[in-house]
Design a protein around this nucleic acid. Structure first.
Length: 383
DNA sequence: AGTGATTTACGACAGTGGTT
DNA sequence: AACCACTGTCGTAAATCACT
């Protein structure tokens, strides 16, 4: 299914005028490159105002990430822009996306337990990392006895920007839920929201023999208490990624099968901190000669050439009739295409045979797999 | 998948300073 | 001293962990 073009996105850019125009009590002056937002209010009959200048045409993918982060970790009261998280890399994403809008004034605070067990080195190191990644100074550090990880808050003290982001997020989410946005943009939004409050759990079947541990499911969990947002997110996952989320209170959980996991890796929507779990899942399947292994074998031996079931059977080391079933399943899932053709070099057997070829999708997944580090021990759980 | 425990991140609140 | 916008600080609801 092809993504429908929308007036919101043109050549990968979003015109923020569309969003800014809808803001209550904000005057918008549209120029070629920038938008000048002015909000006026009265203090004892005297008019006062504040002005914010933002870029007008912004990269849709970067905005989508920003809005996903805003959805998950952003303050949503419309008084200012605030992002709270322990991971400096997320702040880096957040800050870089805001810079894309022409915002450069950030105010960052941190919280730390200062307990003896944690010591001061951890604080120093993380602050250093934060500065290195974001190029923003940390203004102050407060004591929070529970903050054994350093918690960072990035603020942009701008009401109008806060309102703009909230409005933009609603709009993007609603359009995505209706399937009106291109897949790659939605993927960025989803990445942003998963980075924040998505959680991926990998369950393994316990076994005596460590080498034969089996995957017992991969689950996606999003926590979202806003009913509308939760409904939209569920719809987005169903529509774009084929994942059915079930709600338990504010938690929305769905299982990710191997194929979906591969597609999600391919779409690059797995949050950084959960990527290794998904890769572990894929590697387990690889070791057990599941789909990833089969794709790699077929690609290694036939690349984008046509092959027969008999040839595949040699490569995969399985009986021909079993392979035929497997190939049919792969074709059904869009990893293979097949055609029937006349084919009787030596006059033996049926002259009409089915030949197969890996699809674009399969080749994409295969190159993804080969880009993963070959050293499997890297993917061992680290605890 | 369900549940209870832990702790983090969200949102509420308090403080500040400018203006009338 | 009342009002307002803006920003710093903190308590706890909710996000995540851990176990079955």
């Amino acid at each position: 299914m092809k993504a429908m073009p929308t007036s919101l996105i043109t050549e990968g850019k979003i015109d923020l005028l569309v969003i800014a125009r809808g803001l209550p009590r904000v005057e918008v002056e549209a120029r070629d490159e920038v938008l000048v937002l002015t909000r006026k209010w009265r203090v004892r009959g005297i008019e006062r105002f504040h002005t914010t200048v933002i870029k007008r045409f912004v990269n849709a993918a970067k905005l989508a990430i920003l809005l996903g982060l805003q959805r998950s970790e952003g303050l949503k009261d419309g008084t200012r822009v605030r992002f709270t998280n322990t991971d400096p890399r997320l702040h880096q994403m957040f800050i870089e996306s805001l810079k894309e809008l022409g915002i450069n004034d950030f105010s960052v605070h941190a919280y730390y337990c200062y307990c003896e067990r944690c010591g001061l080195k951890k604080l120093k190191d993380v602050i250093k990392e934060f500065k290195k990644l974001t190029e923003v100074e940390v203004k102050a550090i407060y004591i929070n006895k529970y903050a054994h990880k350093v918690v960072f808050q990035t603020d942009v003290n701008d009401r109008m920007l806060a309102m703009l982001l909230i409005r933009a997020e609603e709009l993007l989410r609603e359009l995505a839920a209706k399937g009106l946005l291109p897949r790659e943009i939605v993927a960025k939004y989803v990445l942003g929201s998963l980075e924040g409050d998505g959680c991926i759990e990998l369950r393994l079947k316990k076994s005596m023999n460590k080498d034969s541990e089996k995957a017992d499911g991969l689950f996606l969990r999003i926590s979202e208490r806003n009913t509308e947002a939760a409904a939209d997110l569920k719809e987005i996952f169903r529509r774009y990624f084929g994942i059915q989320l079930h709600s338990y209170g504010y938690d929305h959980i769905g299982s990710i099968n191997l194929q979906r996991a591969l597609m999600m890796l391919n779409d690059d929507i797995i949050p950084l901190r959960h990527k290794n779990k998904v890769v572990t899942r894929v590697m387990l399947a690889f070791r057990r000669k599941g789909l990833p292994w089969i794709l790699v074998q077929l690609a290694k031996n036939h690349r984008d050439n046509w092959f027969t079931a008999r040839e595949a059977s040699k490569v995969l080391g399985k009986r021909c009739n079993h392979v035929r079933e497997k190939l049919a399943a792969l074709e059904k899932d869009g990893f293979l295409t097949s055609i029937k053709c006349k084919f009787s070099p030596n006059g033996k057997g049926t002259p009409i045979r089915r030949i197969y070829r890996l699809t674009e999708k399969a080749m994409q997944i295969e190159s993804l797999l080969s880009s993963l580090p070959p050293n499997f021990s890297f993917f061992r759980k680290s605890y």
